[in-house]
């Protein structure tokens, strides 16, 4: 193994570790919502984790500014909601969770994920 190989091995290992840390070890910031929340859809969801109260109706608005086809739909499978998000337009949905727990919302192709924490 020459010096090149050792360097490539070290950088590759660091690259993989960085990828793991960057994508899979990010901290989740949960935004507490009482009545309504606006979620910006651009390369994911901001905020991507919200906490909402159980038994109360919460309005969740999505505004998509990302042209990626992946994000054109939002799916809240546990609430039986699948909505098309027209580019640049606000789409509001209402959820009244009956159970406490963590529920996910995703894009239509299940690539981007967000979390709804019912408390």
């Amino acid at each position: 193994m020459n010096a090149d190989d050792i360097l490539v091995a070290i950088f590759s290992f660091l690259g993989m570790a960085f990828t793991y840390w960057f994508f899979l070890m990010k901290k989740e910031e949960v935004v507490s919502v009482t009545n309504s929340v606006n979620i910006i859809v651009e390369g994911g969801y901001s905020p991507n984790a919200i906490s909402i109260p159980q038994g109360k109706t919460t309005k969740i608005s999505f505004t998509r500014s990302d042209p990626s086809g992946c994000l054109e739909e939002v799916v809240l499978g546990d609430f039986k909601i699948r909505k098309f998000l027209p580019l640049g337009k606000k789409v509001t949905i209402e959820v009244t969770p009956k159970k406490k727990g963590d529920f996910s919302f995703t894009c239509g192709m299940n690539m981007f994920h967000g979390k709804i924490k019912v408390v």
């Binding site: 651009e42 390369g43 990626s68 994000l71 981007f112």
Partner: peptide, 13 residues
């Protein structure tokens, strides 16, 4: 256009 904002959110597709 899809990659750059996704990376800002530390996600990828």
């Amino acid at each position: 256009k899809a990659t750059i904002p996704a990376l800002k959110h530390r996600t990828a597709n």
